[in-house]
Write a protein that binds this DNA or RNA. Sequence first.
RNA 1: GCCGAUGUAGCUCAGUGGCAGAGCAUUUCCAUGGUAAGGAAAAGGUCGUGAGUUCAAUCCUCACCAUCGGCUCCA
Length: 586
Amino acid sequence: MEEHAEQLRHSLAHLLAAAVKTLWPKAKNAIGPAIENGFYQDFDMGKTVISQEDFPAIEKKMREILATWHAFEVKEVSVATAKKHFKDNPYKLELIKDFAKEGKAITENDPGNFLDLCKGGHSQNPQKELQNFKLLSVAGAYWRGDEKNKMLTRIYGTAFATQKELEAYLKQLEEAKKRDHRILGEKMDLFTISDQVGKGLPLFTQKGTWLRELLNEYSQSLRAAKGWQKVWSPHITKNDLYKTSGHWDKFGGELFLVKSQETKDELVMKPMNCPHHQQIYASKPRSYKDLPIKYMETTTVYRDEKAGELLGLSRVRSITQDDSHTFCMPDQIEQIYQELIDVTKIFYETFGMPLRARLSFRDPKDPKKYLGEVSLWKKAEDILLDIAKKNNLDYFVAEGEAAFYGPKIDFMVKDSLGREWQLATPQLDFVQPARFGLEYIDTGGKAQTPVMIHFALMGSVERFLSVYIEHVAGNFPLWLAPVQIAIIPISDKHFEYAKKIAEQFKMHDLRFKMYEENDTLGKKIREAEMQHIPYLLIMGDKEIAASAVSVRARGQGLPAGRQGDLGQMPVEAFLEKMKTEISEKQ
RNA sequence: GCCGAUGUAGCUCAGUGGCAGAGCAUUUCCAUGGUAAGGAAAAGGUCGUGAGUUCAAUCCUCACCAUCGGCUCCA
């Protein structure tokens, strides 16, 4: 964020605090930083409940107060003075105490008639610069982000230097809302969520299933080309498996339990596939000549996510991973990583999504969170860093983001609205193979422990879909579109010709929808456009006479006359066009 | 899990302490159409679920369920 925007947003957080404290004198303001595109401010509101309905009043008060603000004066004060100034605010007192302990200077600012504890960094000209803001939402947030602490009321707002930028941002929010995958998913009939099946358990329609299968086919085909082979594992398993792997201690609360009525077996729904794949590896002795061994399996795993965390397809309880596990010798790690990085680059380039890599390493200050020897971790992290450099990845290191069994590369993927998502994640694992006693015999005839590499290209099909639907706003490329062609006969006189064309499409494995309803042409075109079908074929007397079809490419937005009109072409020419586009994944 | 909001027809949403409403979608009929909604009629509801207050609850109260905005978490 540029410094200027940060200053004005931070200043607005103060202004919001001032307004809320004027309207509700008992409110205690906690912290209020600038964030991307705006700011927030936390309050302890006591028993008062604030809702969006209060926003007009708050915004009005903010503008009133703003008129009295001139310059932010930042003053350093003693701990005792600061404590006196904020004696009624336990949050500020806690901050003062912490700052004092860390030996930081304590600074206050007062732009007019509102004293606040603050490190500084404000707008130089509040009258002029703080005009373009809007309050957006109210939410709960734990004090200092710790769920053991009290929940405060957080008010989010957005602010820009100019009215024009503010309006553009609000418009972008609206656009994002329109392409929300939950809304498009329903409109385009891709998936549905039923109360009777359960929350976080989406059901996929025929169209949504095409997307799942085509995406998976692509994901697996890229890896198959580099030697990964499919395996299969069942969906329930004895819980001992996860006790051995170490997952039970860490994630036991999120496992779905399954009880056998025949035996005393305590089973669980599998929350991941790595232990299963390790058991396949362990099914017979392995030699160094067998390595690397590359398994892949796209399968659904089940995790009991906390209720409030479920969200459309982005966070679900039935998660379909396009998973793979590779067992190799330490000196093969680099080669495997290179292959996985190659695959990831191709995959995301196909979808037009730029990549950035986050190297998720352990937090050196909190070694208890991780299993395995420190020296192994260090070695693994060095290898990842080295590979990232060699591949010219746009990368950054994030300490404390590692999985408990090893460091990983999280690929951050940028969508067309500029939002970043974490999808593909090659993860190195030095811990689990040892726990399961996996071995291979090296050239000297000695048993060694292999290294395991976890990797899912999409991450999960559901999560990838949630991002991708919004990335393309429902306009899937031809090779992916569940319905590729809308066949629109002008009237029932033309149905027979339309059916003949449809037969040809069937022979070429093209996916089409026939608009046979007795509706007007305009209506049928509208419906096909609203379904984001890539090509619309209109056929009437003229087309029959010419043994042709009239082709209209999908419009990308609102109606604008005959946009996308490609004119009449012979059926063969159209088929050829489809073939080319599909094979090139355009 | 926590804070807040919401839940009325398949969808989007009005509305009321006293027989439940619209638009779109659906069905039927009329219209046979040339590039984003032709016309008419019908059908469609335990007003999220359960309890309480009341002569009477879709409306008020409580609990639960689900959804949404966030927080925390995310193998």
